[in-house]
């Protein structure tokens, strides 16, 4: 029997090795956040600078702004990506013709699978001053100048949050629809006997039944408080909207990979990973406490 169990450990080896190389080695590489890293000097040869990179991060106006932008954009997305799918799931749950229900589901899940390269390309085209959206809006609202959706910081944020919600809301309804389908029909029948309207049933049966899953999804999304969506921003932004639209990930790419300031870039990245870790652990604890959710 003992010999048989050895096989179980052998099976783990490929996964453990790959994870070690591609996940844990880079974590070790985080030490360059405390160095003035020069690629030709390497990890051991580069001079140590203590917390200087972090001090620099909190002194530079652009990095502070980037952190603020990240919180703002990610926060708005979290809120929007929680509320819209819940409302949509409730409305979709009322549809009784299976054909329509299926068709709607098929269409709204689709954008989730398309990349931000594809969608970014389409959005840039549609939102340009000569694009489809301005072309439709101008005559309707009688505006004389096209709206600079991607050239004005505030519009840019609105576009980022709205397009992210548009891409993800359908897919996010799946988990809520599953919960709705699991509500005991006997409760509705009982409410029916008591003469409750559908609105009353929604308020007193449906919503309370959804509270656990809403709690879980809501708290777990806290782990993403610094994930403002690199792919999306990178494919939509431009220097004109850096003040409102630049986020940690795009900033790290520009100062780290493009300008070669590895130390500062890694420090900002480490700050992000660390805050992310704290938030995720807190979120899982909260989800466990509030709704008894466990990942395993």
């Amino acid at each position: 029997m003992a010999k048989k169990n050895t096989v179980l450990y052998l099976m783990l080896i490929p996964g453990i090795l790959l994870t070690f190389i591609f996940n844990y080695l880079p974590m070790g590489g985080l030490i360059i956040a405390f160095q003035k890293f020069k690629p030709w000097l390497g990890f051991t040869g580069s001079p140590w600078v203590g917390w200087d990179n972090f001090r620099l991060m909190f002194e530079r106006e652009d990095s502070l702004q980037v952190i603020g932008n990240t919180f703002a954009i990610a926060g708005l997305k979290m809120l929007s990506n929680l509320v819209v799918p819940i409302v949509f799931a409730l409305l979709l749950n009322e549809v009784r013709q299976m054909f329509f229900k299926r068709a709607i589901q098929t269409l709204v899940y689709l954008p989730h699978f398309l990349s931000w390269v594809i969608l970014g390309g389409i959005l840039l085209d549609m939102l340009s001053s000569q694009g489809l959206i301005n072309g439709m809006l101008l005559p309707v609202f009688g505006i004389d100048r096209p709206i600079q959706f991607l050239g004005d910081g505030n519009w840019f944020r609105a576009v980022v949050v709205a397009s992210d919600t548009w891409k993800e809301f359908g897919f996010s309804t799946i988990v809520f629809l599953a919960t709705l389908a699991g509500i005991n029909p006997a409760w509705y029948e009982a409410a029916e006997v008591d003469g409750a309207s559908r609105w009353k049933q929604t308020l007193h049966i449906t919503l309370p039944s959804m509270i656990p899953i809403i709690t879980v999804v809501g708290t777990l999304s806290l782990g993403n408080i610094l994930n403002a969506g690199f792919d999306q921003i990178f494919n939509l932004y431009n220097p004109l909207v850096y003040d409102k639209g630049d986020i940690i990930d795009t900033f790290v790419y520009r100062i780290g990979v493009l300008s070669g300031q590895f130390g500062l870039g890694t420090a900002v990245g480490l700050f992000k990973s660390f805050v992310g870790l704290v938030m995720i652990v807190t979120a899982y604890r909260l989800a466990y406490k509030l709704a008894n959710y466990r990942i395993f």
Binding site: L12, G15, I16, T19, I21, F22, N23, Y24, L25, P26, M27, G28, G29, L30, I32, P39, D249, V252, Y253, G256, V257, F262, G265, T266, G269, L270, K272, S273, F274, G276, L277, I280, V281, I295, F296
Partner: peptide, 23 residues
């Protein structure tokens, strides 16, 4: 072993160390 894998979902080295690693 389970935590060994789960931890990678919680924390990562980020872009620049990964880039240096591939190099």
């Amino acid at each position: 072993f389970a935590w060994y894998f789960v931890f990678t979902m919680l924390f990562s080295g980020g872009l620049i160390p990964a880039y240096i690693l591939i190099q």
